[in-house]
Write a protein that binds this DNA or RNA. Sequence first.
RNA 1: GCUCCGGUCGUAUAGCCUGGUAAGUAUCCUGGCCUUUCGAGCCAGGGGUCGCGGGUUCAAAUCCCGCCCGGAGCACCA
Length: 505
Amino acid sequence: MEEEPKKREFKLPPLPNVEKYSVIVTRYAPNPDFVLHFGQARAIYLSHDYARMYNGIFILRFEDTDPRVKKPKIEFYDAIREDLIWLGCKWDKEYIQSKRLEIYYSIAKKLIDIGGAYVCTCNPDIFRSFIHSSNPCPCRDLAVEYQAERFDKMLEGIYEEGEAVLRVKTDLSHPNPSVRDWVALRIIDTKVHPHPIVGDKYHVWPTYNFAAGVDDHLMEISHIIRGKEFLVSVEKQMYMYRWLGWDYPEHIHYGKWMMIGAGTMSKSKMLRDIQLGLYKSWDDPRLPTLAALRRRGIQPESIHRMILELGVKLSEVRFSWENLYAYNRKIIDPIARRFFYVADPIRLRIKSIPLTEVTARIPFHPNKEDMGYREIKVKVKDGVVELYISKSDTVILATGNVVRLIGLFNINPISVSDKIVEAVWHSRSYEEAAKLRARLIHWVPIEENVAIRVVMPDASESSGYGEKLCETISLGEVIQFERFGFAKFDSKLPDGTMVFYYTHD
RNA sequence: GCUCCGGUCGUAUAGCCUGGUAAGUAUCCUGGCCUUUCGAGCCAGGGGUCGCGGGUUCAAAUCCCGCCCGGAGCACCA
């Protein structure tokens, strides 16, 4: 048997300059101010996969150095770890920046001593006017000893928030003003804004560029893979690296994911909307967080494939749910068991049935016989059977054409009202239905069933009854409710109602 | 103030660096198939003068120049 090499294998392109490093080390460095979202999976998978591809090391580093504006929360450290594990990306080492402040201080002192940094006490507006005209602010040229002294004063708490920062000396004529003498450390009043891990122990905090720059060197990161919003960071950090005589790691930047239509990939916006009560929590099905995707039954492998196929490019990509669904469907369709779920149920009464009992035998999967069959018994009383069907299917009955109840028998609709649909027996066999090109609808016995609720992607809820065998669905299992869609068993309410999260069609 | 990216079937994208086989994929639409999902699956078909103008070349979506439109990002956030 020959396999046509038709299906493309999505292998990662080789990393640049691997021969320069004895070990390939990558890192994923999130701020634990929120849970991970889909867009971040890109850096995670790429960093992780490359580390594995080269038998290297994958580091998880929490960048929690802003207790004020992007304040970390203790619950998100674990939530992020959980997300990473779910994605299948195990890390070899873990660091937390808030526990490394002394390290940053010592590097800062070194930088001051060699004349690469200075304490600036200018008010930001004054500083900006200097820097915009490429002129040094008065602080820049103070003696090194005096700088060191001023830095000690920063650490001692002599300065208040906003009164002093440590700046890295760069080229004052750099075309990008934001690069000129950027801020390495600043003061944050942790009495007012305590840090979730170290509380108010420190009030001098490194900025992203300083902390990440220092750590990438100290942790011997060989390849940095991150979003292109950090492109300018390379230029900034390069000045610090030059002062210290360090070599900057290889760096790869990719474009970010944009949401199509409504919704956002922005952590701060999501957080804000949750606080506003627009969303229940960070795993609200409307959000593109990994927690939400997980809850909905999206498989991590779907996300993985999508990312690998998109590769690494500087261009932005628009995130489409449809696209993700397509990948996910490919993975879950072959393994998801099928069940009947009648949403928004309405009674269907069929008369003149020439049988005393009917049993429907329906496969758990239409194309996989080895997954077995399920049997649903239906009682006939005096030639009458009552079932539940979905209200949305009454439009099919309303045409008056013969309809087949899947696996059961064929009926002739008589009347349709808001409360009940009346019909009479037509015939038994599927062949008969096929001959008549009858529409097929699903159903659930009226005596034996399970109450079910399904949380939809827009957070609305569908409710109705499922066939009795839904009770065999295990927690977390992704199944397909026929003619409804894929769903994941989420939880059980005290009254026995099974709650599902809708995955997709 | 500065920087980066994009404009390819209705939609989202690959291809562009290393010009040349029918511009690939997913979704979408249409039709068919399936001892039974016209809401899944499978198969077939439909659909693009590759933003505009010029240039280089035997040959350009691919290289060069100009133009138009759109998107993203940096500043004591990460």
